[in-house]
Design a protein around this nucleic acid. Structure first.
Lengths: 341, 341
DNA sequence: TGCGACTCGGAAAAGCTTTTCCGAATGAGT
DNA sequence: ACTCATTCGGAAAAGCTTTTCCGAGTCGCA
């Protein structure tokens, strides 16, 4: 067996020789084509297994004119949003016999450009762009022609680009409706920077859920716990305090909860707090644990996988779709006994 | 130009036709080989650019017997450790003309196996395994032969495997020495589960830095803020309190700081606290901000890139190397004015 | 013995790129 | 006109796999 070749260096010719059949027969046997006796097929299969033979994908792809490979390009240097998306994608693509490979541009357009270049050279069957914020991004500086391209948790300046996103507005409606269902009547919204589309959409969902939204109860600031702390302090200083706070993300929510705690305000009894993202690092460490809105990124990845497969098979896809978020109630809105609190 | 072919579908034959030269001449022109007039070269180059021609990497790799591609296999489903490593790797590999593609197995051995399979089919020139904990992992269930393999922030059951890791013990020494240099005399160590090798190494570095370590000041528990809170409460309940606490990671450190705050204990004046990982989500949100030990994962990735390139070029590498960590002092050990505190 | 069915061998071609080698064409110099 | 140097064309081969097609061999049946 050990003829100086590594397992992944054996060719089909080696398998044929080892099985005592012709090259064409070996190919037919492994590909379940042609008219061969079952005995012959099994002999070839056995030989292939003994050699640890693995077809050379490069040669296969060259011959087929299709690589069965999809490239994922992310600019999310922390991986927080990309990883669950990737997981969903990989599951669906794998079931269709397609491999998924990721390149991370770390928010560097030059690096991204060369990743695209590399993937095109590998003749990928499709490209997926994703990132750490869903706002429009510049069109890649390379012509992609008819290659199937899908933006996931991301959008493009290119008109008609196929985009898949979480429903930020719907998620905000869920959060606000949850607070309303708990009898809350004065709901504040502490959120991120106005130049994020997600911020605008979440705000819109909040506003649409209230018969009358008080602009004084809407505060914009950076995505940080520190901002959450400060914003909560401001709300507490108001003549009339809110009885609930919908935070634009979990980090802000955590900061809010900390200020409330510092001021001996009971959560959720006095003021209920709900975040967004369902980031477990935040939701679980917070005291009390945070209710949140989950963007279902893994499902988003699965849906993206299904769509890209359809595109690869020739279907046309364009425009923006948004998938629903999920409410995850925890102690910050629903009173439950908390150990150690 | 638009002859029904997408930019990445033009072949060298198309370029040659477009430039009015032969196939061989086109190849020589683009590869700066052969003896051609400069004028001819430029004509071919122009034609290639006009068509948006990109050589078919599949055919190139087949011909060269080398793909100039490296696969990164991670089981870190959050990406927290993997992303900086990947960034360092990508920078170094790119400079050597090598593409890096990542697959994320999400801690599923079956998924990992098929990722390896896919990458071997693509005839990658090397493989890198990384993860979210550095303990030994089972040998992959596939024979890799002579393929260059490197474990980064990860180890293997396979004897002699080439592994690159942060120096946990050295990092712990840095942390403890830092506390000692601040005049602290009673240093506690609150850390993670004993079945993590990193936990044992960090504990060893702590113990080695003290002339006499008190076992009662060493507490093991889960990697969580909640554990940090509880452990701090235990330490406060002791007859003699510590004047410093070295936490096994930043999450634990943050929990410690929260309990100290709840008990009106000033950090670092009364008790100094230092974490490990330098995870900005934790270090920056903590009150006060956490001093920490940075594992220099991006540098680890760069070093990994250099090593793998040497392996690909035929050098032999084996055994485990550890790269030094860096102390990052912040307000939790070094008193500075903190806005809003 | 002849015919038909089954099975396989092996040659050829294709996919794309690189490289070598030999021949042909052109221009310059003697 | 002849020779030499330069430049390029084009054929061929190689890398590995798949697929088709035709021919050969074997076996079973009439």
């Amino acid at each position: 067996m050990s003829e100086g070749k590594s397992p992944n260096r054996y060719t089909l010719r080696d398998v044929a020789r080892h099985a005592g059949v012709s090259l064409g027969t070996a190919s037919k046997a492994l590909n379940k084509s042609g008219t061969l006796r079952q005995e012959t097929r099994e002999k070839v299969l056995k030989a292939a297994n003994e050699l640890g033979f693995r077809p050379n994908d490069l040669a296969q792809a060259l011959h087929r004119g299709q690589s069965f490979t999809v490239g994922l390009i992310s600019n999310d240097s922390f991986g927080r949003f990309t990883m669950p998306i990737m997981e969903g994608l990989e599951t669906v693509l794998h079931a269709a016999g397609i491999a998924l490979f990721m390149c991370n541009a770390t928010d560097d357009p030059e690096r991204e450009k060369r990743h695209i270049d590399q993937l095109l050279g590998k003749r990928v069957d499709g490209l997926i762009f994703t990132g750490r914020r869903a706002d429009r991004r510049p069109v890649p500086g390379l012509a992609l022609g008819n290659l199937p391209v899908l933006y996931v948790f991301s959008q493009s300046d290119e008109p008609g680009a196929a985009c898949l996103l979480p429903d930020d507005e719907g998620g905000a409606r869920l959060a606000t409706a949850h607070l309303l269902s708990l009898g809350r009547t004065r709901i504040a919204h502490v959120t991120g920077p106005e130049d994020f589309e997600a911020v605008r959409l979440r705000r819109r969902g909040y506003e649409a859920s209230l018969s009358k939204a008080d602009p004084a109860l809407i505060l914009h600031g950076p995505w940080s716990e520190a901002w959450g702390r400060e914003a909560a302090a401001r709300l507490l200083a108001m003549p009339t305090r809110p009885d609930a706070i919908f935070a634009g993300n979990d980090q802000i929510a955590r900061g809010i909860v900390e200020t409330l705690r510092d001021n001996a305000i009971s959560v959720p009894q006095d003021i209920a707090v709900i975040g967004f993202d369902n980031w477990s690092v935040m939701t679980e460490a917070s005291r009390p644990q945070l209710s949140s809105i989950d963007m279902n990124l893994k499902l988003l990845g699965e849906e993206a996988g299904h769509r890209l497969i359809r595109m690869i098979r020739g279907e046309s896809q364009s425009g923006t779709s948004r998938l629903p978020c999920t409410l995850v109630p925890r102690a910050s809105t629903v009173p439950t006994p908390q150990p150690g609190q």
